[in-house]
């Protein structure tokens, strides 16, 4: 069966302007065959989720290097719940200490957190494995 490409929103939330990782990953996932939307800087949890719904994405990838991750991930999660869109996978990366990453995953505020230095290939592989098959199937062909 033909599959529709996985769609992912790479987002920068909050005041943090470090966009190198976000952009490198956006380009890498695009080269890996995914459809990638980049949010641009300074999104709020609300504006990011709105964008995710408008773009009908399977995954939201959030890059945070400002230390605000313990505030931002729960707020994005709450907003997804409020808009009945919990099926969208949330993943993250940036300067996030391992114990914070564990807590975010345990509390279901993120499905995966990737450490600095993680390869694009690993991240793309994780996404392919975790986006449910029916979402990857061609919409009208499914």
């Amino acid at each position: 069966m033909e599959r529709r490409p996985i769609r992912i929103l790479i987002g920068k939330v909050g005041l943090d302007g470090h966009d190198r990782g976000a952009k490198v990953l956006a380009r890498g996932l695009r080269d890996a065959g995914m459809e990638v939307i980049y949010s641009g800087l300074w999104q709020t949890p609300e504006s990011l989720v709105r964008m995710a719904l408008q773009e009908d994405v399977d995954v939201i990838g959030i890059s945070i290097l400002s230390g605000a991750h313990m505030t931002i991930f729960p707020r994005v999660h709450d907003e997804l719940v409020r808009r009945h869109a919990e099926e969208i996978l949330v993943i993250g990366g940036g300067i996030i200490p391992p114990e914070d990453a564990q807590a975010l995953i345990q509390d279901k505020h993120a499905a995966a957190i990737f450490a600095p230095g993680e390869s694009i290939e690993t991240i793309a592989g994780w996404i392919r494995e975790h986006v449910p098959g029916q979402r990857q199937a061609l919409k009208d062909g499914a």
Partner: peptide, 16 residues
């Protein structure tokens, strides 16, 4: 350019 009590500052005060 935001004060610490601005809504934009939530979660970021004194962090980095």
């Amino acid at each position: 350019g935001y004060d610490s009590d601005d809504p934009h500052s939530v979660g970021e005060v004194g962090r980095e």
